[in-house]
Amino acid sequence: MTQNTMIDNFDIAVIGSGPAGLAAAINLKIRNKRFILLGYPQLSHQVEVSVLIDNLLGFPNIKGSDLNKAWKNHLEAMDIRIVDDRVRQVYTNVFDEKHVVACRNGDYIVRSVIIAAGIIRNNLIPGESELLGQGGVSYCATCDGMFYKGKKVVIFGTTEDAVHEAEYLCEVASEVVFIASAKVKGTVSASNCTQMRGKPVKILSENGKFTAVEMFDGTQIEGAALFIIKDAAGPSYLVPGIEAENDSIHVDADMRTNIRGIFAAGDCTGKPWQLMRAMGQGQIAALNSVRYLDEENYWSGL
């Protein structure tokens, strides 16, 4: 990982551009706070593909794509921009109670974070969580690639980001096998890279260390390490030290998590996974994030 630019002109970072993140952003804008909204400019994929939403107050049977359009218009009307950068991890309380939101293109130093990252819908590959870390499975090529200098590695990716990570690995490893899922459009041109379509069905290991992935047709691809590049990792990976159970972040009625200055809202805080709940939580998180910044004793009341 190269030295990232440190950006400190924001007080609050909102992670996620679904209903929770957007509701938070609108309220922060109204309260005149310097915030950055990190997410996908095309907003929530889940909302986009919802054919009919029957329980959004005031909008019976609205199409998901129409709702996303209305949200986009609202953001534009308020001059709120979505920064299209991928959040890797959030490092909390690093300098004087400030948090670092480490992204692909920059590290944002903020006083408060609202996690509105939704829920992970992808399934883990058998063996993935057990081998993450010392077992040779990693979610970040630029972080851990250097350890496999001169060795053969395997990278499995479901997003376009995976192409960049694979390219980086080609510079460091002797040989790279890049397994790209159907959604990935980019290709890697390096001579030491073999690119293929598919998805591993199993991760094989020996003595607690990764040895190979097994594909649907039974073929095995060996390597010294496996890098998995996907859309989202659970909250415990995103924010080390956060209290969560089954990937649901614990929050109190103020949307506060166990870490000072960190709030969470929406599907990532648990069920029911519903639009109105997400929007309400996003608003509460934003208003309390403002209180946290403005009132000295706000958090100690926890």
Partner: peptide
């Protein structure tokens, strides 16, 4: 740790 490792640098102040 290593110089090129982001989380390592974050751990420094801690």
């Amino acid at each position: 740790w290593a110089e090129w490792c982001g989380p390592c640098r974050m751990l420094g102040p801690v």
